[in-house]
Amino acid sequence: MGDVQAIVATLGYVFSPDRRQILMIRRDTRPDDIHFGYYNGLGGKLEPGEDVITGLRREIHEEAGLDCTGVELAGTISWPGFGRNGENWLGFLFRVTAWTGTPHSANPEGSLHWVDVADVLAGKLPMWESDRHFLPLIFADEPEVFHGVMPFSAGRATSWSYNT
């Protein structure tokens, strides 16, 4: 199996004030992007010297122009083999429940959209098939922090398991 060196990343789901929608990016600027055409939360790789909250706040400020004032840990996911060259990723997933600013309409990665949580949970948006496994945990009425592992092979999730 080798060692578990991983790229550490954040993934944030920014809620509208009424909690019915979330701000998602549609990755539609670079056709060679492995996420091309998919909707996803906001976030990215941690920089050296950052904790995960600082990294999340930086990424959401860069990507959406928002300053996060309310952040809740939703869970963590280990994605062995997820990277373009088979790198392992470790993601810290957050609910952003309060923020200030006016969201950008787009950024260099794609366009930003408010989407209904119900549509996300119903699978009505193009996204990583594997996201459907953990999104119900993030958007649960009474969420519990979860810790999951989702191995990838050849660009697809091969299994999913988690603990709370």
Rank of each mutant, 00 (worst) to 15 (best):
G2P: 14
V4Q: 06
Q5W: 15
A6M: 15
I7R: 13
V8D: 00
T10P: 09
V14K: 00
S16D: 15
P17F: 01
D18H: 03
Q21V: 09
M24D: 15
I25E: 14
I25P: 10
R26A: 09
R26V: 14
T29H: 14
R30C: 13
D32M: 02
D32Y: 02
I34R: 15
F36T: 09
F36P: 06
Y38L: 06
Y39E: 00
G43K: 00
E47Q: 14
P48K: 06
G49M: 01
G49E: 12
G49Q: 11
E50D: 08
V52D: 04
I53T: 15
T54E: 09
R57Q: 11
R57C: 12
R58M: 02
E59W: 11
E59C: 10
I60L: 05
I60D: 02
I60W: 00
E62D: 03
L66V: 08
L66A: 08
C68F: 02
C68T: 10
G70I: 12
G70E: 03
G70Q: 06
V71Y: 02
G75S: 13
T76I: 12
I77W: 01
W79P: 06
W79V: 07
F82L: 14
G83R: 11
N85R: 10
N85A: 13
N88R: 13
L90F: 05
G91K: 00
L93I: 14
F94P: 03
R95L: 00
R95I: 08
A98L: 05
A98V: 03
T100W: 07
G101D: 07
P103H: 13
P103F: 04
S105I: 01
A106H: 05
A106L: 09
P108H: 11
G110H: 09
S111C: 07
L112W: 07
V117K: 13
D119Y: 05
D119I: 06
V120C: 08
G123F: 03
G123Y: 03
G123T: 04
P126G: 02
E129K: 05
S130M: 11
F139L: 05
D141S: 12
E142D: 14
E144M: 06
V149F: 07
M150E: 13
M150Q: 14
A154V: 12
R156Q: 13
A157L: 04
T158Y: 00
S159F: 15
W160T: 03
